[in-house]
Amino acid sequence: MLSFRASLALLLSAVLCAAPAFATPTHKKASSSHTRHSSKSTKASAKSRHKKLHGQQGIDTARATEIQQALIREHYMTGEPTGQWDSTTMAAMQKYQADQGWQTKLMPDSRAIKKLGLGPDYSNAINASGSSFNGPKPATDIPAAQASGFASASGVNR
């Protein structure tokens, strides 16, 4: 049994010593038939073809009109809504967001949209009628058996 362990240890140490010799990288020379183009226009056009745009790229005309109406209502803009996300609208939105202490980037902040009353509308959702959007039921509407269960669970005697 001792000779087996010794043989195993010797084999393991030999493998560990030999592993770095096999792990050295080898470099291949480039073939002379391969030509390399270093034209900047080729690289620039390749990058522009593969560049993928992320996020919202612009604001829809109908949405811009809604935002402008809200900014007019809040006295950050004057005149009539045009539906165009122009410099006047961007300046008004930046001023509104700055007055709230939020970022003033060119795209509207979600908090600003919600505060202007333009956030998501969940009134037609499937579970809207029994959700937390409605006020709590009055205590008189709780069945007696349920009320007594609450009282016994809380330790309150009626």
Score class of each variant (00 low, 15 high):
2 L>P: 03
2 L>T: 12
4 F>I: 15
11 L>P: 03
12 L>E: 01
13 S>H: 00
13 S>V: 04
15 V>E: 09
16 L>P: 04
17 C>T: 00
19 A>Q: 02
19 A>V: 01
22 F>I: 00
23 A>R: 04
23 A>T: 01
26 T>L: 10
29 K>P: 15
29 K>S: 15
30 A>E: 10
35 T>E: 12
35 T>I: 11
36 R>T: 12
37 H>G: 00
37 H>E: 07
39 S>D: 15
39 S>V: 09
42 T>E: 06
43 K>E: 08
46 A>S: 07
47 K>M: 05
48 S>Y: 00
48 S>G: 01
50 H>A: 10
50 H>E: 09
51 K>F: 13
54 H>R: 14
55 G>S: 12
55 G>L: 10
57 Q>C: 14
57 Q>S: 15
59 I>H: 05
61 T>N: 13
64 A>T: 15
65 T>E: 11
66 E>Q: 14
67 I>K: 01
68 Q>S: 11
68 Q>G: 10
68 Q>E: 15
70 A>Y: 00
72 I>R: 12
76 Y>L: 11
77 M>N: 01
77 M>Y: 00
78 T>F: 09
82 T>S: 15
82 T>C: 13
82 T>Q: 13
83 G>Y: 02
85 W>K: 01
86 D>I: 09
87 S>E: 13
87 S>H: 08
89 T>P: 11
89 T>C: 11
90 M>L: 11
91 A>I: 05
94 Q>P: 04
95 K>D: 06
96 Y>Q: 01
97 Q>F: 02
98 A>L: 10
98 A>S: 14
103 Q>D: 14
109 D>E: 14
109 D>R: 11
111 R>S: 01
114 K>R: 14
115 K>P: 08
117 G>H: 06
118 L>Y: 02
118 L>V: 05
120 P>Y: 13
122 Y>D: 10
122 Y>S: 10
123 S>H: 08
124 N>V: 09
124 N>E: 12
125 A>K: 08
125 A>I: 03
132 S>V: 05
133 F>T: 02
135 G>K: 01
137 K>N: 12
138 P>I: 03
139 A>F: 08
141 D>F: 05
142 I>C: 00
142 I>V: 14
143 P>M: 01
144 A>R: 06
144 A>Q: 09
145 A>V: 13
146 Q>S: 06
148 S>C: 14
149 G>E: 10
151 A>W: 03
153 A>P: 05
153 A>Q: 06
153 A>M: 08
156 V>C: 03
